[in-house]
């Protein structure tokens, strides 16, 4: 099927089989390999991207479902001039990543939530961290990172690019 994926504001005209899952289309057809596959069953969240502003598991969506819908991946998280997103800074500062395999998923999950509500409370942050798996960090640094990013986001000093 002929479709156009609109990822990080760029158009990718593709000819894909209907069965192709979004994650594979992003990784192999668009060359955006920052989105990772850790389980292909919706559990780990490494594949999380924003589809129409909503954080979803890209292993549980078909590429053909996303024809013409705006998609945001980790490659599009930084600002136009390459200015890091507050989440990217915060993950580094709080050591929210070790091997980095789960990281894009956590980033996009949190980016979607921050876009919906920049005033993330502790319980919302906890809910986000509970949504994905990380085998390296033990999660607490990820929680701190998202909390810090939410704070920075609110303080508004850190640039204000919305993720979708």
């Amino acid at each position: 099927m002929k479709i156009t994926l609109t990822v990080n504001d760029a158009a990718y005209p593709l000819d894909v089989e209907p069965r192709r899952v979004l994650a594979d289309a992003l990784r192999d057809d668009c060359g955006l390999t920052g989105t990772h596959l850790g389980c292909e069953q919706g559990v780990c969240g490494a594949c999380t991207v924003l589809v129409d502003g909503e954080a979803v598991r890209s292993c549980l969506m078909l590429a053909v479902q996303c024809d013409g819908v705006p998609i945001r991946t980790v490659e599009g998280l930084a600002g136009p001039g390459g200015e890091p997103h507050p989440l990217q800074r915060a993950f580094s500062a709080e050591r929210g990543l070790q091997c980095g395999f789960c990281t894009p998923g956590f980033l996009m999950l949190a980016a979607g939530a921050l876009d919906h509500d920049p005033r993330l409370g502790d319980e919302e942050v906890a809910d986000l961290v509970r949504s994905n798996l990380c085998r390296c960090t033990g999660y607490e640094p990820i929680r701190r990172a998202i909390t810090r990013a939410a704070r920075d986001h609110q303080n508004g000093q850190e640039g204000r690019h919305r993720s979708v």
């Binding site: 919706g42 999380t48 598991r57 809910d127």
Partner: peptide
């Protein structure tokens, strides 16, 4: 039921 990204779909 599951977690937020699953519940969104």
């Amino acid at each position: 039921i599951a977690h937020p990204p699953i519940r969104a779909r």
